[in-house]
Amino acid sequence: MTLFRGLQFLTTVNDLSALPHEGLEVAFAGRSNAGKSSAINTLANHTRLAFVSKTPGRTQHINYFDFGKERRLVDLPGYGYAEVPANVRAHWEKLLSFYLVNRDNLIGLVLIMDARRPLTERDRRMLDWFLPTGKPVHCLLTKSDKLSKQEQIKTLRTVEAEFEGDPRVTVQLFSSLKKQGVERTEEVVGAWFDAMKAATPQDGNETGDVESTDGA
């Protein structure tokens, strides 16, 4: 598959009222410095499509990328940042939670977690916001090349055990350096879009959008 290979930057927003009205979206979220931008670049086979900041928490906007057929990849602001002002952190968390819970266009979440430190408190908070929507989550355990094979297997099994019995959540190892896990990610996310297409009448139903009454 080459689902992400035609990915192109579309727009960036910092207010929920400015989100695009059309299209179906898959959001990528993760703790700052967990490798989210690197993962997006690897999936797209593009070295600088998503900005890789050396300062965790630098990316403060919601960035939209388009890969055709009204399909969008949404790069959400990193969380877990320690070096940003409290009011900025509060703004981001409000924006993220409202987007994840209320965005009708959103069909699934790809949660990026450093394989060496998965399921942090803020990772769990993201899941607490999103899982009640009933939409699927795919966990990418990034930087897996930094673990031994034995450690990789142990980490994968530990995270999978957290969601045992929940068919909405899938987990895999991923390495941007080794290009590990690209095909599996394409298969999972591609299936989400295929399922939505199959469930949508041929005459089409408009997807909803989120409006912010206070500028988020």
Results as ranks from 00 to 15, higher is better:
P20T: 13
S175N: 10
K36V: 01
S176N: 11
P56Q: 14
W92R: 02
V13I: 12
V52F: 08
D123K: 01
L119Y: 06
K94R: 07
E25K: 14
K154A: 14
L106Q: 06
F65E: 07
E162I: 04
D194M: 09
A27N: 07
T47F: 10
M1K: 11
A18I: 09
F9E: 08
P85A: 09
P201F: 14
Q8R: 14
E186M: 08
T155D: 03
F163S: 00
A18F: 11
V26D: 05
A199R: 12
I62V: 05
W92P: 01
Y99K: 01
D66T: 09
S53M: 04
L10G: 03
G80C: 07
T207W: 14
W192T: 01
A18E: 15
R72E: 08
T120W: 05
E83G: 07
T12K: 04
L19Q: 07
A199D: 14
R124G: 05
L119C: 13
V169W: 03
L173D: 05
V159I: 03
D166R: 01
D214A: 14
E22A: 13
D166K: 00
H138Q: 08
F9V: 06
V84M: 15
D209G: 08
R125C: 06
L156I: 08
F67D: 04
V188Q: 04
R117T: 10
R125V: 09
G215R: 08
D209R: 15
M196L: 10
K69T: 10
L10S: 06
L111Y: 06
E83N: 13
N105Y: 13
A90R: 14
K197H: 11
Y81D: 02
R124E: 15
E186Y: 07
N105L: 12
N14K: 11
T55Q: 02
D203I: 11
V84G: 00
R103M: 05
R72L: 15
N87W: 14
S176H: 10
G30T: 01
A29H: 02
V26I: 03
G68T: 06
L10A: 12
N41F: 13
C139Y: 04
T170G: 13
E164H: 09
D114I: 13
F9C: 06
H138E: 07
W192E: 05
P56W: 05
R116N: 09
P77W: 02
D203V: 12
Q180F: 11
S144I: 06
L100E: 01
R72M: 13
S17H: 14
R168F: 03
E206T: 11
K69M: 12
K149A: 11
E93V: 04
L16K: 03
R168P: 12
A198M: 14
L3G: 12
L7M: 07
T12L: 09
D114V: 14
N45W: 07
G35V: 00
A86H: 15
N87T: 10
A39F: 06
A86F: 10
W129I: 01
L49A: 06
E211C: 10
R71V: 04
D66I: 10
K197P: 02
S37K: 00
N87G: 06
A216C: 15
S53I: 03
G108S: 10
N45S: 15
S97F: 01
R116L: 07
S144D: 02
R157N: 12
Y79K: 02
R184C: 08
G68C: 09
A86I: 12
M196F: 09
T42Q: 08
T59N: 02
T142P: 09
A29E: 01
C139D: 01
L95N: 00
A195K: 02
P118N: 03
L19S: 02
P132V: 05
